[in-house]
Write a protein that binds this DNA or RNA. Structure first.
Length: 235
DNA sequence: GCGACAG
DNA sequence: ATCTTGTCGC
């Protein structure tokens, strides 16, 4: 899919990275949920060995719940894991995998926060600046923000507030399991982000695009080749 | 100083 | 995230 180039460098110090986030957050925009939603991409990464990351991008079709395409990318680790600076660690590999996709998804879901971030620029929001389609963050844990309890029914949600502003929703994608922290990345709003994620859920806690990307990344980590992984996911 | 802290 | 055994439930 189309990915912008050269917005800024990734090899920065933690202090520089935090300052850059505050500056970039100002360029984020809202928007409506694309309709129809034909193809949705999901991205997830896994540690490959002790010094590299493998990113997996899976394109999925909501219409028939089928996998359309899988792309992988492996990059050496160049940034430590620091809460709040996750994008600087995962973005290079994630962007490379997305750029390798032949199809053009209408939306991309990431395993992490969108604008529900201390400086308003979580993984999905940051990466959204390189893409021309809406991005959504669907994290398994809370990074920041406060919310009311969420009822135990599929689709139930509670607004996630940060600094007096609603930055997303805590969404129950499935009864009996912990809710997801959904927040818009770029080119979409909180409601659209939550609707998109719920629309991609098929009985599991995680939306299919991200769930499948997680499986693909885990297989790549174990040494399986891209063709083998795609073959297994397509079946 | 004491918690909280995406993956 | 990753390290790890058994265990509860459909």
């Amino acid at each position: 899919m189309f990915v912008r180039q050269g917005l800024h460098d990734w090899n920065l110090t933690p202090a520089e990275a935090a300052r850059l986030q505050e500056r970039l957050a100002a360029s984020l925009s809202g928007g409506r949920l694309p309709s129809p939603l034909r193809l949705v991409a999901g991205v997830d990464l896994a540690l490959s060995g002790r010094d590299s990351l493998v990113a997996a991008a899976v394109v999925w079709s909501p219409a028939d719940s089928s996998v359309v395409e899988v792309a992988l990318a492996r990059k050496p680790l160049s940034f430590p894991y620091v809460p709040g600076l996750l994008s600087f660690r995962e973005a290079p590999a994630a962007l490379e995998a997305l750029a390798a996709l032949r199809s053009e998804p209408d939306l991309v879901i990431f395993d992490g926060q969108g604008i529900a971030h201390p400086r308003g620029l979580g993984l999905a929001a940051h990466l959204g600046l390189w893409l021309e389609v809406p991005t959504v963050g669907a994290a398994k844990k809370r990074l920041c923000g406060a919310h009311r309890p969420v009822r135990d029914r599929r689709g139930s949600k509670a607004s996630l507030f940060l600094g007096g502003r609603r930055v997303g929703f805590v969404l129950r994608t499935r009864p009996g399991v912990k809710p997801l922290f959904v927040s818009p990345g770029n080119r979409i709003g909180p409601a659209g982000a939550a609707r998109a994620v719920l629309r991609c859920c098929r009985g599991f806690r995680l939306p299919e695009p991200t769930r499948l990307a997680h499986i693909a990344a885990a297989m790549a980590k174990r040494g399986l080749s891209a063709p083998e992984i795609e073959r297994k996911l397509l079946s």
